[in-house]
């Protein structure tokens, strides 16, 4: 701090000195906004990677699923390792199917319902994973400007009080306090803008993935229902 005070007046408007000269409320706001920004970007990077992986996994699974491979074999190979997306839906449905048939299910209608439930559950769990932290992005995007504005208002308030104390309205006296206060708003906007943009992009991506998985679930449900009918017919 000592050395900062000795800095020549023109240099005293650099970002670092602006931050250090600010009051503790403004400092707190700035630090909070900085943390929010870091977390926002962490989420953005994480989600971008996760969505990319999910998309790749969906593509790969669809390729395998429609390749004409037997469902039993596919289930066997998939149940042994960790699955995601359609894979987990498929596994959940097949597990339910297997359990019901091994124990000799009486009602095909109840079986169909159970399989649908299991698939819904798996789908919901998957979507939960995908959309997990997008809410935070929305919150930051909406509230960061206000938090920054709050810091600015507090900063300007204190700087006006200081101006009143100095009894000078010279712009050179007024300007640094206001510039320092405005830094809070700048940081708030800096955090909010990427958050809003990323939230819109990621939520629409998540929506597309969800539609794709729902479509698969419906299709698979139809296939299984046909299988059940065939089994009932052969039994009867």
């Amino acid at each position: 701090m000592e050395s900062l005070a000795l800095v020549e007046p023109t240099a005293s408007l650099s970002i670092w000195t602006l931050f250090w000269q600010a009051g503790w409320v403004v400092k707190l706001v700035m630090i909070g906004l900085l943390c929010a920004s870091i977390w926002t970007w962490a989420i953005i990077i994480d989600k971008a990677v996760a969505f990319g992986r999910m998309r790749a996994a969906l593509n790969r699974f669809e390729q395998v699923f429609w390749s004409g491979q037997s469902l039993e074999e596919l289930y066997r190979s998939l149940s042994e390792r960790k699955t995601s997306g359609m894979g987990s839906i498929f596994v959940a449905a097949m597990r339910e199917w297997k359990k019901s048939f091994e124990k000799g299910a009486k009602s095909p209608l109840a079986l169909q319902t159970r399989i649908d439930k299991a698939m819904d559950l798996a789908l919901t769990r998957e979507m939960e994973g995908l959309e997990g932290r997008l809410g935070f992005l929305a919150t930051v995007g909406a509230s960061a400007p206000f938090i920054g504005l709050f810091g600015t208002v507090v900063g300007i308030m204190t700087s006006f009080q200081a101006i009143a104390g100095s009894k000078s309205t010279n712009l050179a006296v007024v300007a640094p306090g206001i510039a320092e206060a405005l830094l809070a708003t700048a940081i708030g906007l800096l955090a909010a803008i990427p958050a809003v943009v990323a939230y819109n992009k990621l939520s629409s991506d998540a929506g597309k993935l969800a539609v794709r998985m729902e479509g698969f679930a419906d299709e698979f449900s139809a296939i299984l229902s046909r299988q059940i009918d065939e089994k009932v017919a052969t039994k009867g």
């Binding site: 926002t40 970007w41 990077i45 994480d46 990677v49």
Partner: peptide, 13 residues
């Protein structure tokens, strides 16, 4: 998540 956090922090720094 770890990767994202680390990357983000690094980016900010």
């Amino acid at each position: 998540m770890k990767i994202g956090l680390v990357t983000s922090t690094a980016l900010h720094v």
